[in-house]
Design a protein around this nucleic acid. Sequence first.
DNA 1: TATGGTTGTCTATATTAATAGACATTAGAG
DNA 2: CTCTAATGTCTATTAATATAGACAACCATA
Lengths: 241, 241
Amino acid sequence: MMQRQKGVALWRQIADRIRASIAAGDYDATGRVPTEMVLAESFGVNRHTVRAALAALAQEGIVRAEQGKGTWIERRDKFDFPIGLRTRFTQGIGDQARDLKGVLLSAEAETATAETARWLKLDIGAPVRRLDALRKADGRAVSRSTMWFPSARFEGIEEAFRQTESITRALSACGVPDYLREVTEVSAVHAEPDDVAQLALSPGAIVLVTKALNIDPEGVPIQFAITRFPADRVQFSIRNG
Amino acid sequence: MMQRQKGVALWRQIADRIRASIAAGDYDATGRVPTEMVLAESFGVNRHTVRAALAALAQEGIVRAEQGKGTWIERRDKFDFPIGLRTRFTQGIGDQARDLKGVLLSAEAETATAETARWLKLDIGAPVRRLDALRKADGRAVSRSTMWFPSARFEGIEEAFRQTESITRALSACGVPDYLREVTEVSAVHAEPDDVAQLALSPGAIVLVTKALNIDPEGVPIQFAITRFPADRVQFSIRNG
DNA sequence: TATGGTTGTCTATATTAATAGACATTAGAG
DNA sequence: CTCTAATGTCTATTAATATAGACAACCATA
């Protein structure tokens, strides 16, 4: 059933499977997770191993155990982040959360690396501004972005983002009232130490990584962003037409 | 640096980070992974722990160690799977692999569950045909799909897929020469036992999950599919316009 | 051919993960 | 109140993970 000696503790594998079951709505009829003994038998492990898994899920705020009663689902919904021609972070996730915050972690003047230059159609070494931002929805970190803008057009982007907490409004302040998403690459990796720290994840947790290019209505690249989302809190939906 | 006591063995965390470095092209200048001693110092662990990580990557076919010389990158590219209005598996991944295979694992007549009915706009309990398929590119499993079709229009879809090894051609044989991708949901989870077995993954590995709806040119739903991709072999790219 | 650098293998030890059992604590039903 | 069923806590033991050191095997090259 479960696999041993593969570098992932049994309790973590079980936590991952219970989390997936909750997300899939398996326990929605009762809102309750099966008892520790039932889970232990179904996974073929000791009750203490299941307890370790449930403790991890409780730590994440997904379940809550009540002595004498049972263990209950605390939260199951993911944020759904739509990706399309007009992809906007604040709008996209806006109606799913009450409190949205965009925190500017750092801003620096840099020169374009090979990758940045390729995406932004600049020469390698061209001046760019890099912004690092953390976004929170209802107090939970939902993304960590590193964004690059051509310095020539976006000198004051840093201050504008700090004030408005929104890329759309910051770009507007820099004279770009509208922009389009040209391409989004999606991949998934394990959380790195920076993700663990900033997104409050466990090692082994999954991070969805997008590389995205935004262009102005004339087709000129204005922003290249690498964004990392905690996969247990976010999913994407791509709508065509 | 690395996190302990979090249910993921150090060697597996290190394997994940080296894999990510290779995928990012960090070692492309030499095609060579740093020596075991250098890696051990940079991660702050014992050389044996690094050796366990490299052994796992060698098992995956990503690196190859040569005694006395060093450890070399064996393979680094991911398949890029484009998602758009006309998403086609075989076409999309076709020019990136020499050998493409679609194996029908099972086919059954079922009645629509709540989820299937919602996506296909059928009544719950309506007759549907379910197909399970495994796709391989150059011998490596790249996806595992479960697909549902309304039975009324797609009685012979199973036999058509078995012969053509392609959904596009199977649909064409059922009188649907063209179809469109309406929506694709993307999420990521840890590999489940079935993924481990069929996609040849390790527990703790990442699986990208898509839920996709295809419609005919009149907008009538014809196929709902849940597809699971190994995240270390596949990425998605979403192009707009 | 001698040397330095690299991977491969072995032994030993300490720490962490997993199992097992016993019993306490709490909540709800009868 | 009593009984049952559930979670919470403790001890003990076994298995797996991580560290440490020593040395063999192999490769390139000075």
